[in-house]
Structures are given as C-alpha cells and as structure tokens.
Design a protein around this nucleic acid. Structure first.
Length: 276
DNA sequence: AATCCATTCAACCGCCTTCAA
DNA sequence: ATTGAAGGCGGTTGAATGGAT
C-alpha cells in the first residue's frame, strides 16, 4: 500500500544505515544555526554538512528546538515572527526569477563584481583611475542584461556598507535604504545549493560559502529575514566593527571561501554556550 | 484515573527539476 | 522538442507520547 515515493522517504529518513537519531550535540546545534543563517531553510543543503543527519531530522529539530531557543533568546529584544520570516529560497509557490543554475552563476558574477568594486573603493591609491565608476572588467561573464548590478559603483558599496554598519539598523533597511531594489530581489532569492552528489555538494559548499556568505556579509539585509534577525543577532551583537573587518577580509581575499574551510570561520559566531 | 495540553517526529503533500523515452 | 515518470525538496499534518491539572 506504499508508493515508491513513500518508500524512498522512509528509507532516506529512517531506515538508511548510518543515520543518527536524536540527541543533537552542541556542535551540531551550532552548525545548524550557522548554516541556517547562511543557507536559509534549505535543509537538504544543510544536511549535506551533517552526513549522519537527514534533512527531515534537521528541519524538525530546527522547528521544534532551535527556533524556540532563538525566540527565547530574542524575547528581550524586539522579537519578530519567525514563521512569517521563513521560507528562504522558494516558497510553496516556488517562483523564482531564474532557474537555479542561472541564478547561482549570476550571483557569483555579482559577487566578483562586488569584490572588484570594493577593492577599488578601498584602494589606498588615490590616483587609481579604476575607482569603479564603471563596472570593473570581470573575467567572469558579464551579468545578464537586466537590472544593474548592485555593486557597480564604489558609491553603492559605500552606501551599502554604511547602512549595514548603522547600529541596530541593518535589518529591514539595507538595500532599500541604499536604493538598490534590484539587489534586494536578486539576493533574496538565495543561491541554490542542490546538495546532492559529491560534486554538487562541494560546488554548493563553495558556492554557499561564497554567495551565501556574501549575502550574509556584504548585504546582510538581503539574507533571509531569519538570517537578518534571529541568527544575526545571535551571531552578532558583538558590534559592527569586527564584522566589518571580517567583511573586508572576506571580500578582499579571493582565496577565502574556495576551499573546504570551516564554515565557522566565515561568519563569526559567538560561543554557543552564550546562547544555549 | 481521567482529561487536557504541549511537544515530538515520521509521514504526507504539493511543487519543482531531472531524465529517459 | 515534447512528455511523463521519478526523484528531490521544503512546508505541513497528525498520531504518539509525556507532563500537568
């Protein structure tokens, strides 16, 4: 009386050998919170970093335990509706502007452009002619025609960072404040990390670290709402200055984010014991 | 002991993507 | 190029369970 789909689900979520059940360790908890901040509610992608856990398990754990913990933690300070802020990449409607791969490539191109522009903007050489009035020449293919890239000028970058660094401000007004609407829509659609298969897993790992990390760092307001509220409060609250230099480092260091570096290194997250 | 309420988690649902015919 | 089946994914449901009254 079971369909193949139901059997597959039963296997992957329950019967498959090697899956661990219950009792999430602190480390796992921390990792899940961290990954959720980076990837949003893309449980399959998150689960790819926890080989012994299924996406269903992680999703359940998030919904039943972690969300509650975060809510409790934030109870003192302007809590928001977690449920309403959910639904990272695609919701039920699943309407995204571009297909997965296309969108991911596009985001990576944008990140490259942003890096280049920031490098120019932060350049110590005042005589530098490249001060990013025009979109820097990127080795990667130019972004598809459409809304202008959000990081096409140093001014944009500066505004963006200013808005972000505004104390307590980052949340609902980033890209909007910087007038970059297209940015918002673009970045709200999270990069798709399929998380299936080794190749795509590693690809998505680096892509996540890059693109999601970029979204989390360069334009935190463009994260999923949860990223920008619950988790960022959780991970941050440590003042904006350190985060900014982390951002600088990340953006200026092309080597970062390409390897299998620990995710914990990408975005600083406080000691979990502080929160749990 | 009975009832109510909250929590947990396996399973289901609907949508989307992929792939083979 | 088209189409249908299968797989994958995230959101949601509901039965089971435990604690409180």
């Amino acid at each position: 009386m079971r369909c193949s789909k139901s059997c597959r689900l039963r296997w992957t979520n329950y019967l498959r050998p090697g899956i661990k059940r219950g009792n999430f360790s602190d480390q796992e908890e921390k990792l899940i919170v961290h990954l959720q901040a980076l990837l949003g509610n893309r449980w399959a992608a998150i689960a790819s970093y926890l080989p012994e856990r299924t996406d269903n398990d992680i999703k359940n754990y998030w919904n039943t335990h972690l969300k509650k913990k975060l809510k409790k933690m934030l109870a003192g300070g302007g809590g928001e509706d977690g449920a309403s802020s959910e639904g990272g990449g695609r919701g039920k409607s699943g309407k995204v502007g571009a297909p997965k791969g296309q969108w991911e490539r596009r985001l990576q191109t944008d990140i490259h452009t942003a890096r280049q522009a920031l490098r120019d903007a932060l350049s110590l050489d005042p005589a530098s002619p490249t001060t990013a009035k025009t979109a820097p020449s990127a080795p990667a293919p130019a972004p598809p025609a459409g809304p202008p890239a959000y990081a096409s000028s140093a001014d944009n970058i500066a505004r963006l960072l200013q808005g972000w660094m505004r104390p307590g401000g980052g949340e609902a007004k980033g890209p909007e404040a910087s007038g970059s609407t297209s940015t918002t829509t673009q970045q709200q659609q999270q990069p798709q990390c399929s998380g299936d298969g080794a190749a795509s897993a590693s690809a998505s790992a680096s892509a996540s670290q890059q693109s999601c990390g970029a979204a989390a760092a360069a334009a935190p307001t463009a994260q999923t709402p949860e990223c920008s509220t619950e988790t960022s409060k959780m991970a941050g609250d440590g003042g904006s200055a350190p985060a900014f230099s982390m951002l600088e480092n990340w953006l200026l260091d092309d080597g970062m984010g390409h390897g299998e570096l620990g995710l914990m290194d990408v975005v600083p997250l406080g000691d979990p014991s502080e929160f749990f």
